[in-house]
Design a protein around this nucleic acid. Structure first.
Lengths: 368, 368
DNA sequence: CTGTTAGCGCGTTCAT
DNA sequence: ATGAACGCGCTAACAG
């Protein structure tokens, strides 16, 4: 008996109800070819006659048909999608990273599934589970805490993953900025300007990037043969309020620091609030350097000296790393550390000159 | 003949190669039940015996199996995913909106496909096509230009869609902030402080939100029986550089304004740069009010008076609107306009008091 | 070069 | 309450 195809309307709705979008079957029927020919034509397969190809395209246009990636990727067992888990979508650092991720992912034909864990371990786990269920090809991940359950589950699942900014200990691909180098440059700048009592508002100690910044801070002192003023190092949470309270605490000490280095952009805003609140003048009363250079840096009065971070590139190269791992799961683990640049403005006094910066991309390969 | 199931390894990899994650079949086999029973158990179906349910869960845990949403949603013809198209992921306004979107989407079990068109109409079209191919249930969209091809294609496709911030003319769901009301409040505040020559740096005229702000600016003058200083209204692109150049142009006029109202956050930063560059003092030489209140507002010296926008809520309610439309495609079109609040700080002089603000949510239903 | 066939992993009827 | 069949929309073998 003949293959009676049951009636379906081909995209254009004749009545009021929303018609199901025309699929490969309707296209095949209208073009008068087999379904598989449509598939080949649309997938850019080599062995398709120009005639068929043209008629297929014509039918697609006439029906306003759109390929079904869900079915396509289920069948081909090749999901061209990647997941992102970030702890705070509101932080400009991460949005810029996501910008970079999106750019290279889209160029590779991937789509981006974004989730925000809002620094909540439980939401983080749910996000990881969702992304697994969506069968993404891989995940770009910034853990929100020191011992992330989501991270462990993901690692155990064997799903390709690259860590961003905060690098966990294990053998995982990762991309980040040179926190140590950037911090050393910032503090060295202050030392060169004669500062010795340099406060440091840093983040929670479990984060690898926080540890790196600490190392850079200390290295700058040691390089100049100076003792590290450990009493001036404070650990705050990475939010604006954290920076505010830490700075306030620093400023109310008897032996107040003459300069301060703040470890992330939101905390820097909080630190500035505290400084203004005390009626202190920048840079006369206190010099300020921030980690992470953002649009508002030039709108402050005086303009803020800051460590510029290649955030877009971090995202872009992390995504690249992920794509490469998806291509070759056996490839040795790689960690990319991107160089920073100290942008000298007016918040430390002294001449406003452009320092060379360490644009060199340190790249280290760890065993697989 | 018997149905010979070909061998597959159930999740745990015995050799070095990455094993395919265990699916419903492996779970069924290990639990000793049929595939359909597993499906029912995992989908929370009512008629499943506790015994079977328990064994299924146990098998899922043992195999570390994760459901396949791709297959599930292909089969059930119900894709629980929504797409987002924004013009600039770097703009804090949009990231906050996305934050709200993600929150309600995730709560509804949806996942979020994010695309950034970077103000490029061509990228925008590609993003729209990708999202259609992903068969998302709906799209949250901020068109990047006056006559967006992507918008037209999407509207023609009949895919549920809600416009964000910039509302196109047609009968489409939309969510935005009360630009007119917020602008009127900002300008009225300046007028009350005695200012008459109030500059206005606004965005490109095609945008509905720009038009609304213009209306609010004019309304404030008219309400006080004053003539609108149309010569002080400038249209810049919405970026920082746009604000800088417009402000610069305003400040170099013979009859310089005594106050300025800037229509978005990035342009405000640019305007501040221009003001500082001219060596002008805020608020003595010029008063400043910004549209969109961001974290750095309180870190400026003096702190910035600004119109606070319910950006998170815009995203959240837009997502809610989308979900409702997906549920009921016939529902009449709705447009949500969320109220703003003027946050008075020091950048205009005068007493720092909290104004009431129009928290009322204007909500208007247009015919379907 | 093109059509036919057999599934991808799962939900959903039908039986029982 | 449970199992067997069928198919979602598409790709990938094979045959012709």
């Amino acid at each position: 008996m003949g293959n009676v195809s049951r009636p379906r309307d081909g995209g254009t709705s004749h009545d009021g109800t929303a018609a199901r979008p025309a699929g490969i079957r309707e296209v095949a029927q209208r073009a008068g070819v087999a379904i598989s020919s449509v598939s080949r034509a649309l997938s850019g397969h080599p062995h398709v006659s120009p005639a068929v190809r043209a008629r297929v395209y014509e039918a697609v246009r006439a029906l306003d048909s759109s390929p079904n990636r869900v079915a396509r990727e289920l069948r081909s067992r090749r999901r061209r999608a990647a997941g992102v888990i970030i702890p705070d979508i509101t932080n400009p650092f991460f949005t810029s990273v996501v910008d970079g991720i999106e750019a290279v992912l889209r160029r590779a034909g991937y789509c981006l599934l974004l989730t925000n864990s809002n620094e909540d371990p439980e939401r983080e786990r749910e996000n990881a589970r969702l992304l697994r269920a969506e069968k993404v090809a891989g995940i770009l991940f910034t853990p929100s805490g020191p011992d992330s359950a989501a991270y462990r589950e993901l690692a155990a699942s064997g799903l390709p993953m690259v860590a961003i900014s905060r690098l966990p200990g294990g053998a995982v691909d990762g991309g980040t900025v040179d926190c140590a180098g950037g911090s050393a440059a910032a503090v060295a700048h202050l030392i060169a300007l004669g500062h010795r009592r340099i406060g440091f508002v840093n983040g929670p100690a479990w984060s690898s990037s926080v540890q790196e910044r600490q190392a850079g801070y200390e290295a700058a002192f040691r390089k100049h043969g100076l003792a590290v003023p450990t009493d001036l190092v404070l650990h705050a949470d990475l939010r604006q309020s954290g920076g505010y309270h830490a700075m306030r605490e620093l400023l109310t000490r008897r032996d107040r620091p003459t300069a301060v280095y703040v470890g992330n952009n939101l905390m820097t805003l909080g630190a500035l609030e505290a400084i203004h609140e005390q009626g202190l003048r920048i840079p006369k009363d206190i010099a300020v350097v921030g980690f992470d250079d953002l649009p508002w840096a030039t709108s402050l009065q005086p303009a803020l000296t800051a460590v510029r971070l290649p955030t877009f590139d971090v995202g872009a190269s992390a995504a690249q790393l992920l794509l490469e791992r998806v291509e070759d799961p056996q490839r040795p683990v790689r960690t990319l550390v991107l160089g920073t640049r100290l942008v000298v403005r007016a918040s430390c006094g002294g001449p406003v000159v452009q320092l060379p910066g360490n644009d060199s991309r340190l790249e280290e390969g760890v065993c697989a």
